[in-house]
Design a protein around this nucleic acid. Sequence first.
DNA 1: GTAGGGTTAG
Length: 646
Amino acid sequence: MAKPAVEFHGLAHVLPFPLPRFQKKNIAAMLLAVLASPYKTRTFSARARPTIPTSGLHVLDLIDRASLEADPTLYDKLLKKCTHLGKIKEGRAVHSHILRSKFRDDLVIHNTILHMYAKCGALDDARKLFDEISSRDVVTWTALVAGYSQNGRTEDALLLFPQMLRVGLQPNQFTLSSLLKASGAGPNHRHGQHVHAFSFKYAYDSNVYVGSALVDMYARFDLMDDAHLVFDGLVSKNEVSWNALIAGHARKGEGVHSLSLFREMLREEFKPTQFTYSSVFSACASSGSLEQGKWVHAHMTKSGCKLVAFAGNTLLDMYAKSGSIQDAKNVFDRLVKRDVVSWNSMLKGYSQHGLGKETLQCFEEMLRIGTEPNDVTFLGVLSACSHAGLLDEGQYYFELMKKKYMIEPHVAHYVTIVDLLGRAGLLDRALKFIRDLPTEPTAAVWKALLGASRMHKNVELGAYAAERVFELDPYDSGPHVLLSNIYASARRWGDVSKVRKMMKDSGVKKEPACSWVEIENTVHMFMSNDDAHLQRDEIHVKWVEISGKIKEMGYVPDTSHVLLFVDEHEREVKLQYHSEKLALAFALLNTPPGSTILIKKNIRVCGDCHSAIKFASKVVDREIIVRDTNRFHHFRDGSCSCGDYW
DNA sequence: GTAGGGTTAG
């Protein structure tokens, strides 16, 4: 049966076509249909033809011109649309329309407007509206708390809680989870515990949102026992609860723990999300569990999860950190959509592998495609120039960053420039650059100069830079060791002893050097002069064998890398048991011939080991990759990708 | 009408 239709005259004179016949009560439905289409430029078809281009605001305009009244459902839809699309200007227009309507005092509508402002990051508008609302309810307060919390205004969010309690309002599960998110970003866990107490009091601690936020909050303060306690007590868990816990362990670099939780999550038939994969990949990256990471990658592919930037960036980074720049590139190429972090991660990967040319090509491609670089982008680009000895390019990009992209450099950028000039041997220019800095140089800046002085054997400048570092950061063992290295290279043993005495007097301990290799899912760690390993005898025999072969090829132990004042023979013995050599011998014993060996180190590879491994790569005919604290060395056929420049 | 989990850099 055909519905009775009435001519709607109100719209007839404003529409550029003969008006279709609407049921009067269907006007709102028609307008909503308009709104349901993408916000602008789509056409609305009434009875198929003719069509008019329209938008949400156009609808309000039509309503005004037809002297109609919009209803709350329409306002609600419009505000949601603005919130979703982040259209703050349009949102303000809807707001002022509402103020002219008879719903100007409707609390629910006002809460929706407040939410719109808060979600779009227009926190001043949100606050202003909040202050104007006379009868605020818990939703009003919660919308503002959430706005502050989601936009990183932790203090403002937390400050609202006692005020809200003072006016006699009780927080609900929405308020509490927002407060917990803010607490997790706070200075300590006290706020979080306080909110936890309220959650318990009002019996919201078993709510899955509040519970997951509690797990996350405790995990962020490294209170993993509490996080597990809350997690285990959750009556109903979901993916988010699992992710909060897995991410907590991942942030601590506890790869094994993250992975076992991931497996448990699968056993309990929860579906991993992009969040889960992202955390697990980063956990694998920091613990060096490449094989495990590959397994998780395969799992993700098999489960039909698309490779988007969200988890893909972390996966890319995992491969780059694990030494496989090719796998990283494959992930990058297959990303469905790349964001600035994808590009930055790829740039950093190239840069750390010493692939200066590839870094710059990648950067140019990024600009060509129209991705706006940020400060992190330039850190990658500049450090690539520094590692590859691209002096002119580095200076060019530093200027480009400031002039064209208006990015204010921060200390990390200054450090790379000092590094760039210093490595290139322009120590005076590096010093002048530091003196001309607009801000006070930090310890890191002087450390870069110290490193360059070590590289170019400039004892005086090295000593000067070291003094500056000691003033700013007296307890870092690295600079002390670097300085004594400088003195040792110059065979100034008296000064070496002075540095050592200084370290002893001020209680600065040298970080014990260690190296590790992953073999068949197990990470094996070696300390220098390590004799605790089960295969120690075989390892030593292996190294003596290699050592003999490489000496025949011309390797001469460089004993200036030993800091002790002992005789030559003993110095050579000490060198033999540097952790990377032990790790290499172990890897050679336990991996198939021809396979690539990846060794990781907690400090920079020493000059002697670098030289020894170069020769060794030829003798054993293997690719050997060593990752130290800031870059990768790819040793193959007697040479290293860093070109002895690191 | 209001809510919780991820990544590069340092």
